[in-house]
Design a protein around this nucleic acid. Sequence first.
DNA 1: GTCTATAATAGGATAGAC
DNA 2: GTCTATCCTATTATAGAC
Lengths: 192, 192
Amino acid sequence: MKENNSRPDLVAEVARTFRANGFHGTTMSVISKRTGLGRSSIYHHFGRGKLEMAQRSLDLIETFIDVMAVTISAPDISLQAKWGTIEGMLRHHYEGGQLGCLLAVFAMEDVPVELRNRTKALFDLWINATARLYESGGVESADSHTLAQKDVAALQGALILSRAQSCATPFERTLAEITTRFGKLSAGIQGR
Amino acid sequence: MKENNSRPDLVAEVARTFRANGFHGTTMSVISKRTGLGRSSIYHHFGRGKLEMAQRSLDLIETFIDVMAVTISAPDISLQAKWGTIEGMLRHHYEGGQLGCLLAVFAMEDVPVELRNRTKALFDLWINATARLYESGGVESADSHTLAQKDVAALQGALILSRAQSCATPFERTLAEITTRFGKLSAGIQGR
DNA sequence: GTCTATAATAGGATAGAC
DNA sequence: GTCTATCCTATTATAGAC
């Protein structure tokens, strides 16, 4: 990303930088190098500096989760098809397990309280959306939340291992396991 | 930790700071505040500065993993008893899920290559030790590594969620699930 | 919308007194 | 073993030219 610094691309590159370098590891110099913008020019796009850069990055994650939620609540689509769509979205977003999760980065570091609160809220949004996917597979409300929490946690852990070991296996295996679970759930629905 | 700056306590506090603030979020000022030492005094204990602080922190993790490995290879101790010991060690080390993992922190951030390489090696050490625990429960070598990798990943993901949500549930649930798995394995051994 | 210049602060590290 | 003083660089942010 050296040319075409239109806003959406800019925010996407900033988000990728946070995910690769962490919050405190993302300096204006790093952003400047990765976007091709001068250090000062960054303030034209993010008036309040680093905090706004982080907030706009979280906007991207919120949109991502919203799209997942819309996919999940779509009528006339099978459970397996819904998960297939989401699996593709996740694989694309995490680039096959090589790029970390912004929420995990902000959760692990000592970030300003506004970011911490929003990170927590977005994790809840994601887990609740996933819980509804399990419910559409006939899982009871109490169990669905536990399963969703486990899936999100499994994904986060796999991302850490995949990144630490520079190997997509943990990430791909976790996706495959969730796929298997939804496959069995679908079979259960048809078998009733 | 304001008094008693004997070396072991110092390193432990430094490691806790890395785990709470991340690598780039851990500045000499932060260390100075948390240990009560002046900024310069830190260099008496860690001659090469921040990098050595990180290395000594990883030493602590290496020792922790070594103790797990010794526990696992002890003769005349049941599978369940071994896991019980390790579970207690993990609960203590992660303070009930409220404190992150140093390896995860270094894996997610953009840290110097020496730290990245050692982080990877320590993850391998941990996973291999856990794999041997599964093998002592009769699991085949190929499967044991996969199970171990899943356990470590599950723990890492749970730690992220527990910290993000300030709630020990994901961490405790993950420990409980592993306990259940080893319980079934033990029953399988006795039932043969 | 981007740049140069600038300034104030924070971060990492060293020298030398005590 | 800790401190004060100091240094250089990096970081964040602003002002104003183009």
